[in-house]
Structure formats: C-alpha cells, structure tokens
Nucleic acid binder design. Structure first.
Lengths: 166, 166
DNA sequence: CACAAATGATTTGTGCACCAACTAATCGCT
DNA sequence: AGCGATTAGTTGGTGCACAAATCATTTGTG
C-alpha cells in the first residue's frame, strides 16, 4: 500500500469511511460502464430500468422513493429514456398530476440483454459471492444509519409529514 | 417496505450491490452536508482539503491519484477553492507544466474546524467503530477489485504505462 | 361550494464526474 | 541542437445530484 498518511490522524484521508465509500461507488460504476454503454444506458438509467422491469408502471414519486433519488434528477433522466425509445411518460388517468412511466416494446426487450450484466460484474470483480453478500449487508446498515441521521428521511425527502405537527 | 422484489431475480433492485453502494455513498455524504456547509465546503472539496492538510503542496496529478478523480474534475474545483481563499494555485518552478496547490492562512486555519467533523459523523451515524472499521476494509477490497477489473487503473487513469512511483 | 393546503412533477442554478480534444512544457533520442 | 513523443493541466460537452422556486391538480375543511 501507499502509506502516505499518518495512521493516527483522525483527519487522515485513508481513515475516512466516506472517502472509501465514494471511491468504491465511482469505481464499481466504472466496471459497469463498458457493459452498459453498448446498451445505451448510464448506471442511473440502468437502475431506473431495473425498477421498471419489476414494477412498471411507476410514477416519478415511486421511482424517487425506490432509488432514493430527487424527482428533479429523475425528470430529465426519464425524458432521455423516452427519447431513447425505452419508456413512455403518460399521465395517470386516476390522478392527472402523476406520471405513469411505462415500458415500450424496446424497453421490455432490453431486459434479456440486462440479464447478462450481474454475472459479468461478479466475474470481473473476481470477488466471492459471500463477500459481496456481506458487503451488501454492511451497506444496508450504513444506509439505514445515514437515513436515521438525516432525521429519518433520504436527502431528497424533506420530512415525514406525520412526525412533527399534530 | 420489505420485499417489493422477487428475491430470486438476479435483476432485482434490492440485490444489486452497486445500487446499495451508490445510495450509501450519497446518503452518507448527505450526513456530512450540514456539517460542511457552515465551513463553505462541499464533500469533494473537503476531501481535497484533507489531502492538502496532510501533504501540501500538491500538484493536480497528485490529487488526482490520491482521490482517484479526473484532472478535469479537479481543475474547476481547485479554482473554486482558490476563489474561496483557501488555496493558491502556483506554478511549480521545477516544472512549469505542473501546478503547486498550496494552502493559504485561511485554508490552514480551517483545519481546526474540520477536526470536529469525524467524531460528529460517527455520533450521528450511531454505528459502532468496529463496524465502521469493518466496512472500511470491505470497501478497500472492493475498490481494489474494481480497479483490477478496470485493467488495473482507476477510471480517470488511462493506462499504467510504467511502474508506479511510490 | 369555496379556497387554502398539500401533492406530483418540472424548471433553474450550482457543483461533481467522466471523456475527448487541446495547449504548453518537458523529455528522449539521435 | 533539433524534434517527435510524453506529460500536466485546461476546456467543452453530456449527464447526474441536490436545493429552491414554480405550476397544475387534488384534497381537506369550513
């Protein structure tokens, strides 16, 4: 290893869990990139497609809750998916405010290509499934802890309405 | 809130380690935000300052290697830090191509404020130090695996031309 | 029914992240 | 010394992420 840091310093770069978290996230996404690029998807778009393959039709607020992403982030992303011909953004007839994001034929078809991605990632990473599973559990715990630290809500979700006012 | 997904489906959103990784990264950064904002720093800027507090002066390529960030990302970020009066971007007299990013008085002074951040984060997360340490080790392994999968280099680092120095 | 509050989505602004193309300085080689 | 290749950094383009402001629709309450 590099050892460029005083290992006792609490401000040492190497000791910051959050630094490791961002680097891990960015670099693992970089492993996905060459696999997603031929499908014409970015990683966040891939996550949206995963949610839709399981649960379409979905409103923006559903996607926002599932992916823990701001609606303001999803709105242009969904327009790009529509421009790519993978989804259609319709109005929910029950509630004209809400969007009903549905898959097109091409969007559904893409799922068979996507099936090859998870095993390819695992193979490229060359890590044991048990270790990945274990990492996943640790991440779920830190996600829960972070959400609790943010007053029990994800960053884009201002406040759980029922909690404070009576 | 439990299984909205078929737990057997390899394309299930819940099973994607990379999804957990991005959400964890974003949401933990959100825990930092209210602490960094009064210091006038974003999280990436905080990481740059950490590196500088330990090792200034640094060139862009040093920061790029340490933080595993693209020089094209660092360039405008450093200009914002300079505009905030925390660093100066000088030329290395030894090599006029290279930048020597140095701390200003204000930049050095900020370090005492920053010392309060790591314990505050740990307190807010409410997780045990041992579990955080364990997560850190898992993340280091996945970072190494991801870099190996990307042909032995971080995304911004096109190719390992020679033997790395240090 | 009227109308204020709440909700769902979009827009705008700032900043991060990656990539490709470019400029300038240095190095390598003959 | 000359000159091509390499290296350091910047710039421009696309897309993600968050916050705040805005707009339309729906809901709640008198």
């Amino acid at each position: 290893m590099t050892g460029f840091a005083d290992i006792q310093d609490p401000l040492s770069l190497e000791r910051q869990v959050c630094f490791a978290l961002s680097v891990a996230s960015r670099n693992v996404i970089a492993v996905y990139r060459p696999l997603l690029e031929p499908m014409g998807l970015t990683h966040p778009q891939y996550l949206v497609m995963l949610a839709l393959w399981e649960h379409a039709p979905l409103a923006v607020k559903d996607l926002s809750r599932m992916l823990q992403l701001d609606p303001g982030t999803l709105s242009p992303l969904l327009k790009r998916l529509e421009a790519a011909g993978l989804v259609r953004r319709e109005r929910d007839p029950e509630d004209e405010r809400a969007l009903a994001v549905v898959l097109t034929e091409a969007g559904r078809d893409l799922r068979s290509d996507a099936k090859r991605i998870p095993p390819a990632i695992v193979a490229r990473l060359g890590m044991g499934l048990d270790e990945l599973q274990h990492l996943h559990e640790s991440l779920m715990r830190v996600i829960a802890a972070a959400n609790a630290a943010n007053n029990g809500h994800a960053p884009h979700d201002p406040a759980p309405t029922g909690v404070r006012t009576r």
